[in-house]
Design a protein around this nucleic acid. Structure first.
Length: 101
DNA sequence: AGACTGACGATCC
DNA sequence: GGGATCGCCAGTC
């Protein structure tokens, strides 16, 4: 079981749940919103266990490169289903779909 | 307590 | 613009 701080998990998932459909946010963006801009890696770790805590649109979270989770294969398909476009190299068009907060 | 790891970010080349 | 390297903070061993 993932033993991370409940507060951190709650904050991250709360922000992730606020991401509008068809938009994507970076880990750093979320980390900054919860007051932990340097802890972007923790955000990813929280998302890795998010499914254990509940249903959240964690597929709308990508890194600042527009790259998807390295240990996930459905994420790209889920985003495409929401209308998010990808570049030839498989990266998300952050320029078009990055969540403007 | 100490060292290694990581769903990242920024900078450098 | 893309790839490689260093740096951050917390978590896990």
């Amino acid at each position: 079981m993932a033993s991370l701080n409940s507060d951190l998990i709650y904050e991250v998932l709360a922000v992730v749940d606020e991401i509008p459909k068809g938009k994507v946010a970076t880990y750093g963006q979320i980390a900054r919103l919860i007051g932990r801009d340097k802890n972007s890696r923790l955000v990813g770790k929280v998302l890795s266990i998010s499914e254990y805590y509940g249903k959240y649109p964690c597929h709308r979270v990508v890194n600042h490169q527009g790259r998807l989770a390295p240990h996930w294969n459905e994420q790209k398909d889920l985003l495409i289903a929401e209308g998010v476009t990808f570049k030839s190299n498989g990266c998300v068009n952050l320029k078009l779909h990055q969540w403007d907060c």
